[in-house]
Simulated assay, not measured.
Amino acid sequence: MHIADGRSLWQRVRPYVLVFDLPLALIIGALLSVGLITLYSAGIAIPGKVWDQLRNIAAAVMVMWFVANIPPQTMMRLAVPAYALGVALLVAVALFGVIKGGSRRWLYIGTQIQPSELMKIAMPLMLAWFFQREQGHVRWQTYAMAALLLAIPAGLIARQPDLGTALLVTAAGAYVIFLGGLSWRALAVLAGLAAAALPALWAVMHDYQRDRVLTLIDPYHDPLGKGFHIIQSMIAIGSGGVTGKGWTHGTQAHLEFIPERTTDFIFAVFSEEFGLLGNLVLMVLYLLLIARGMAIAMNAPTLFTRLLAGSVTMIYFTYAFVNMGMVSGIVPVVGVPLPFMSYGGTALMTLGLGGGILMSVQRHR
């Protein structure tokens, strides 16, 4: 077999090893580092948390590297199978899924999986492929079909019930539909219809979901019960002041007043220990992450890659906004982690997959 141009082994494998977009990798690395520092403090009484998270990060980086090597053309071919597999798994969950805490969200197939996580990426993949196929003759029927493709998995996830994930999947698909050319006028009409449907939504919500909305409006109506956790979280954020109490010196976290302090409420721990200045630095990092993602989307060569990169970037924004909002008491409490900071393997895999998609789009321009 002929060896081309006498290049060394490193020269031949280098394009497949050094696949990360440097600005994006540096931003994600900074967020992961801040997350590990905060997790050490939040989980100081829980041995092994940091080492477990390091393993999660290693797995997420491997996923990111693997996906960054996949050309967008291959992703486009995988869009329909990934969407079909995700919907099939959601139907399987509805039929014979594992029930935990009153919710049927998991499926056991040798190991336990949560298929709704797959839809966070499969949904924008599918809709980006759909709009690429319809490019040049987009009509109102196109948007109606896209809405149907979005409603099927979102409805199955909401039925589990998992309203938080259903809203995230809906947001991921809605970003593609909007970036695909939906007019502001149509968006205003849809927003009006959504507002008009709120009474019907309230009627079908579960009691615990209604309690979350009522707690958002007035957490002090049950300060020692349903409102206790969000009140303690807001106390932690406020008590941090401008400069914070110092690393590992947060009283709300170490006295175990903050719920889920290593996962969904890690932002409260960070705010108490690093204060307003730390929060500003963290928000700048997330703004840089979103700005870099949008720059990659704008420079993408095809409609498919532009829509996909734009949607993945806005998923990062949604995660960060919703998590910080719920911990601060401005949106209802839902199970949304803080990107690249909260402890957990599944969420990190999804976020790493999204980062790999952005890097693939940038690499294969």
Rank of each mutant, 00 (worst) to 15 (best):
residue 238 G to R: 12
residue 312 V to N: 11
residue 197 A to T: 09
residue 289 L to T: 00
residue 262 T to W: 00
residue 284 V to W: 01
residue 313 T to S: 14
residue 233 S to H: 01
residue 206 H to T: 09
residue 288 L to C: 13
residue 228 F to A: 04
residue 188 A to R: 07
residue 293 G to Y: 01
residue 209 Q to A: 12
residue 220 Y to Q: 14
residue 290 I to M: 14
residue 260 E to P: 00
residue 227 G to N: 09
residue 213 V to F: 14
residue 273 E to A: 05
residue 281 V to S: 10
residue 207 D to E: 15
residue 217 I to K: 00
residue 220 Y to H: 14
residue 310 G to T: 09
residue 306 R to P: 03
residue 187 L to R: 04
residue 271 S to F: 06
residue 241 G to T: 07
residue 239 S to W: 00
residue 313 T to I: 07
residue 213 V to L: 15
residue 278 G to E: 11
residue 199 P to L: 08
residue 227 G to A: 11
residue 286 Y to Q: 03
residue 267 F to V: 08
residue 201 L to V: 15
residue 193 L to R: 06
residue 240 G to Y: 10
residue 235 I to M: 08
residue 288 L to A: 15
residue 196 A to T: 07
residue 234 M to Q: 15
residue 213 V to C: 06
residue 230 I to Q: 08
residue 304 F to S: 03
residue 230 I to T: 12
residue 294 M to I: 13
residue 254 H to N: 14
residue 296 I to V: 14
residue 224 L to G: 05
residue 257 F to K: 08
residue 189 V to M: 12
residue 266 I to T: 10
residue 218 D to E: 11
residue 283 M to N: 05
residue 207 D to W: 02
residue 259 P to K: 10
residue 263 T to V: 09
residue 246 G to A: 08
residue 291 A to W: 13
residue 211 D to H: 00
residue 202 W to P: 01
residue 199 P to Q: 09
residue 190 L to C: 14
residue 195 A to C: 09
residue 277 L to A: 14
residue 306 R to H: 15
residue 301 P to F: 00
residue 303 L to D: 10
residue 208 Y to T: 03
residue 263 T to Q: 07
residue 283 M to L: 15
residue 266 I to N: 10
residue 274 F to M: 13
residue 258 I to D: 06
residue 237 I to R: 08
residue 286 Y to K: 05
residue 214 L to H: 02
residue 254 H to S: 12
residue 300 A to M: 06
residue 217 I to Y: 00
residue 198 L to K: 01
residue 249 H to P: 00
residue 205 M to P: 01
residue 273 E to F: 01
residue 264 D to T: 04
residue 200 A to D: 01
residue 295 A to W: 08
residue 308 L to I: 12
residue 251 T to D: 12
residue 299 N to M: 12
residue 207 D to M: 09
residue 293 G to S: 11
residue 234 M to L: 12
residue 248 T to C: 04
residue 218 D to F: 00
residue 268 A to S: 15
residue 262 T to G: 10
residue 304 F to N: 03
residue 224 L to N: 12
residue 238 G to E: 11
residue 308 L to A: 13
residue 270 F to Y: 15
residue 237 I to Y: 09
residue 283 M to D: 03
residue 289 L to M: 10
residue 287 L to Q: 03
residue 259 P to R: 06
residue 275 G to F: 06
residue 282 L to V: 11
residue 243 T to G: 06
residue 308 L to F: 07
residue 298 M to Y: 12
